[in-house]
Design a protein around this nucleic acid. Sequence first.
DNA 1: AAAAAAATACCCCTTTCGGGGTATTGCGAG
DNA 2: CTCGCAATACCCCGAAAGGGGTATTTTTTT
Lengths: 213, 213
Amino acid sequence: MLQQPTRILLIDDHQLFNDGLQSLLNEQPDLTVCGQVFQAGKALTAIQQTSPNLVLLDVNIQGTNGIDLGKTILDNFSGIRVLMLTMYNHPKLLDEARRLGLHGYLLKDASTTDLLNGIRTVLAGNTYFDPNVTHSHPPANDPFGDDFARRLNLTFREVEIIALIREGLNNEQIADRIHLSIETVKTHRKNIYFKLGINKVSDLVRFAIEHGI
Amino acid sequence: MLQQPTRILLIDDHQLFNDGLQSLLNEQPDLTVCGQVFQAGKALTAIQQTSPNLVLLDVNIQGTNGIDLGKTILDNFSGIRVLMLTMYNHPKLLDEARRLGLHGYLLKDASTTDLLNGIRTVLAGNTYFDPNVTHSHPPANDPFGDDFARRLNLTFREVEIIALIREGLNNEQIADRIHLSIETVKTHRKNIYFKLGINKVSDLVRFAIEHGI
DNA sequence: AAAAAAATACCCCTTTCGGGGTATTGCGAG
DNA sequence: CTCGCAATACCCCGAAAGGGGTATTTTTTT
């Protein structure tokens, strides 16, 4: 009996990258790309219209972040596999993806073999989290216990401060702007760094830009 | 008489982007992709082996910079057209490419029409330098004298260092990476800040991301 | 050959960051 | 009514960054 090819929907605002993926996938007889979406807002309707089996979702799609979108997809469509695809080699994001129940996390610069391997693994009902994502924090050596839970659960204040740091303000300017003590800003900043697993401004600015904060 | 399709070699360390390009080019009956290279070091041998008519070369290939590699190709193989392809919307790089005698400079986010147009123009023996690269030379309204002239005339070393800062390296790591004294890196950084009219890392990271460096 | 620009390197000094703490208040879920 | 968490604020200290110089060597341009 002839099996229908598996339907895959691409969600990514990088046109040419999508095309590359599409041509790769189309070489596979058992896979077919049923659509491409370039804006987060159009993702849900596209899913309704194209009924994909698998959604390939870029973490850093403008508007929302891809992980939240992935979660929304999971919540609203049962049976759909969701695979994050990203340039961002960031363990915290991988963990967050896993925590929210997404089915996998792939790096864009993985080899095509690994890409296909990941996709097929996820389609088979398993999860696939790219082993090349460097886990700088093996979940051992944790003095407290709920470190993990705190990770990436940014509070409103923290997101607000991330945005200001991204704009180039220093601690003092941020303190003035939102009427806080500079010490409080420093505390927030420390917590942010901790949650994101980073340790300097440049990392934060990249993170913020890539996630549209 | 049936013409052989023109042979094109892709040099770019971004696998999937290459694939996207390849699928685009393969739709054209008169063009064929004769190979892909992902490392600068393999470029010359690949050219010998595949005898391309045109080389599409990414500026930002790891190891060397693409422009130097382009020059090397021109010096070693006569008759080959060399077209730079890059995300860097940076007039200085474009100028440098032109100065060294490369045949064109295309932006990766150009439309597919423009891409093909550029490729065909270069193949026809002309040069094609993307008109969308913003050439900002406002030599007017300069209160001082050469302040403005220095602005944004980034040298290669500077662009290189911007990229590393953007990646999150600190002065020491940069110094190690490109074998410089940390003091020299600091000097370059100061010059960069001066030229860009900024004064901190966060500004630089934003600048770099916005300009695709 | 001379001038200009790029790349290299060092000094000094101040400000800001980053990382380690601790502590208080107030609110909302259990 | 507590327990947990968010938000607030402070202390200390070492490491980097930022800003001001000057200077030498190469490379490129004129």
